[in-house]
Design a protein around this nucleic acid. Structure first.
Lengths: 292, 292
DNA sequence: AGGCTATGCACAATCGATTGCGCTAAATTT
DNA sequence: AAATTTAGCGCAATCGATTGTGCATAGCCT
């Protein structure tokens, strides 16, 4: 009888009103994610995988970009909670612990991805090992003694700190000296990287023969600076980027890229949700892939 | 008194339950958008602008990617309707009219962007003029007589047809002959463009000195094919791309790109919503920008 | 002061789906 | 055949916010 009604309803195009259903069941079926921006291959790939996996679990995925702005992040999460989101995923968040507090108050679990927090589980890349490998690769690529610049990234964020640690460690392992002026975590945005490089022209830039660029966004700025200066091609410069973009990979194969394993990061995240083992702060590291 | 209660509620962290509010008000505040993929600068930029403008209007934006699959598009729109979305924006949809029908049944307006439909208002690029300009530019760039390949895109979709029309018209205006083998709308995906180019090797490819590539996704495939063949650099080949990517712009400035004016497209779309003049099928064309 | 309007506010009804109670009829047991 | 269990199903209550009705009090006018 119930099935008969269901069948007829379907035939005649009736469907449940999810607002009413959610209200009564106290389950919205919504899973929310915030992320810094969409307009970047790493984050857009995260979004795409998030949607796919959420839908496979029967959830309704909702994403919002918050431009690395702590106030916007809070605002966005608050709005998702108004819609009774059942989980909140914080991607590359500037302050995951604050978001945890907000959600914990109403009993909604948070999970971090890309940048870790101290209060809930975090799935991130193994930035240290990735940076260690990339730095070794660049040292190998250079003729003679390597002098490498590290550019881009937020000096306060965990990922950048870990990558700098890997960068340093590779230098130590190869017996290369390092001085502080080599490391310029000027922020992620392209204009900042551009300015930082321009400031080095005639001021030490010429002494470098390798660059460790902390993201494709920063790569954009660096390339603009070089292009403006006219010396777009310095074929003797070994260039590496801790990030991946398929167009860069095919157009500039000489740039070594580190591809974060987005698929594995997200399947790990959803495994935690599925198994209900997302409680308790800890960090799960996924090795990135040193690309061609 | 009412304000006193509101203030106290805010202070003590109470907030409305949007499910209940939506149920009673019969207004969810949700505006939904579907799009083919996130993982592309054009679409991710659309998403980002959509979110910004929706939020400015006080709506809660929801986006979902549907991989150019008509069944998935229907499914996604149906789900958004369950959540009582008030508007549905169809981006680059394979069958916008079918989606219109679905939404019209429950009184929800649809608006198209990127690819037009016949049943509701569509905001798209002026593909014909853009292609005309790009083709002229490439003919100018070539030494001697131009023989140009058109590659990528869906032969059935409006944008590709219009771009081919512009491509043809430019040839006519310059007195250049054209034959059908020059035009290969093999689909958007990179592997398809790659295969199409590979099939031309030793089979006519060598006679071309210009390429009109229909998207950055196809550009990826074309570049892979050239790279696999070892002749990555043919500096005498004039290359244009009807699409824009900032990394390509800085890394390969010799590639002429057409940047669709995403900001204007979306502000136009939201102007239609705001003014309530979104009824009635018509096409609004926004000129793209011929970049460096 | 009596009659009038204006204001404030409590209360019940409503949105649509879901839940569980309780009644009736059917099925099973002794 | 009577007693008991089981199944089927109608019905009222509920989720939380919002709406409009209606009553009571305050303020105003002659």
């Amino acid at each position: 009888m119930a099935n008969k009604v269901r069948r007829l309803a379907k035939e005649r195009g009736y469907a449940v009103n999810m607002q009413a259903s959610a209200l009564r069941k106290e389950r919205s079926g919504i899973i929310g994610m915030i992320l810094p921006i969409y307009d970047n291959r790493f984050f857009s790939s995260i979004t795409q995988n998030f949607e796919r996996l959420a839908r496979e679990m029967g959830y309704f995925p909702i994403t919002t970009c918050t431009h690395r702005d702590p106030a916007l992040e809070l605002q966005a999460v608050r709005t998702m909670l108004l819609y009774q989101a059942e989980y909140i995923i914080c991607t590359g968040s500037t302050d995951p612990d604050q978001l945890y507090d907000l959600c914990a108050k109403v009993g909604v679990p948070t999970l971090n991805i890309d940048l870790p927090g101290n209060k809930s589980v975090s799935v991130i890349s193994d930035n240290y090992s990735g940076a260690l490998q990339l730095t070794h690769k660049l040292i190998d690529d250079v003729q003679g003694t390597c002098r490498m610049l590290f550019i881009g990234g937020q000096p306060t964020d965990h990922n950048t700190k870990e990558r700098i640690r890997g960068f340093r460690q590779a230098h130590i392992e190869r017996g290369l000296p390092i001085d502080e002026s080599q490391i310029i975590p000027c922020g992620y945005e392209a204009p900042k990287a551009k300015e930082a490089i321009k400031a080095l022209f005639g001021n030490g830039f010429e002494s470098y023969n390798a660059m460790f660029i902390n993201s494709t966004i920063s790569l954009e700025g660096v390339t603009q600076a070089l292009s403006d200066a006219g010396n777009l091609h310095s074929p003797d410069m070994a260039v590496g980027c801790f990030d991946w973009d398929p167009l860069v990979a095919v157009l500039k194969p000489e740039i070594t890229m580190v591809k974060q394993d987005v698929e594995k990061m997200l399947s790990e995240l959803f495994a935690l949700i599925r198994s209900g083992t997302h409680q308790g702060a800890r960090i799960i590291q996924i090795p990135p892939i040193l690309g061609h």
